[in-house]
Design a protein around this nucleic acid. Sequence first.
DNA 1: AGGCAGGCTTTTA
DNA 2: TAAAAGCCTGCC
Length: 283
Amino acid sequence: MEKQETILHISDDFDMDRIAESGQCFRWEKTDPDTYRIIAGRACLYMKALGEDRYAPDCGREIFESFWQDYFDLGENYGKVRSMIDPEKDPFLFRAAEAEKGIRILRQDPWEMLITFIISQNRSIPAIRRSVELLAKSCGEKMTDQRGRSYFAFPDPEAVASLPEGELKACRLGYRCRYVKAAAEAVLKGEVDLPTLAGEDEKRTLEVLTGILGVGVKVASCVSLFGLHHTDAFPVDVWMKRILEDHYPEGYPFERYSPWNGVFQQYMFAFYRHLDRKKRGQT
DNA sequence: AGGCAGGCTTTTA
DNA sequence: TAAAAGCCTGCC
């Protein structure tokens, strides 16, 4: 029987390049000018942009609707979220959102985000990607994608916790080795119940997450935003600190933008990094 | 009690 | 040599 191709129409903000570069996912790989190979948890998807808001995932409609639709957060209307921004009141955020329109907050697995963002501390994006792949390779299940190419599922807490120290070290985690181990054990023992945190408020969520060795407020906020889909979580790193100092010396209006602070943080973060890249290119 | 300096693995520019 | 989507420890 002829395989039927699934074609999707996505009319809301959706730009795979911007999502891939936004620093929330580290297992997206551009395989062609218009295609990404996306690994999430145990799953893998090739997603091709056909132009004019049309996309071709290499899975059936049923699988797309039962997993990927939610992963891409397609139930949310980001255009509507952006419309909260008043260009008169907040020209910087307005410009950032216009420039970075297409970013979405993926609904990723909280356990995967916890380990990934512990690994991310004090590291460049290529280095993060490498370590995540090494970790998946050393204790994640070997899988085969639709094109017959192999990949490794993100390992579960038990697999990470029981990985010999030498093998964990070989993932180039450096001093983060013991943090990754501590996080895996905390989740395995049930000291931290990630699914429950999805329903907790932000204060409580950060309290629990920062209780894990190696998890500070920045990493906890990333887990909250990208893994628990708390769209109000607002990770502040060295870049965001500069943005807040440069553009909001009187304070940032968190109340005005609740519960979408995390979405706007992503626009500003991406915008600022792109500006910085351009500046460096010129001088 | 809460803020601050220094150290930490590894990679990249 | 310094910086990279930081965090821990010890010190005050």
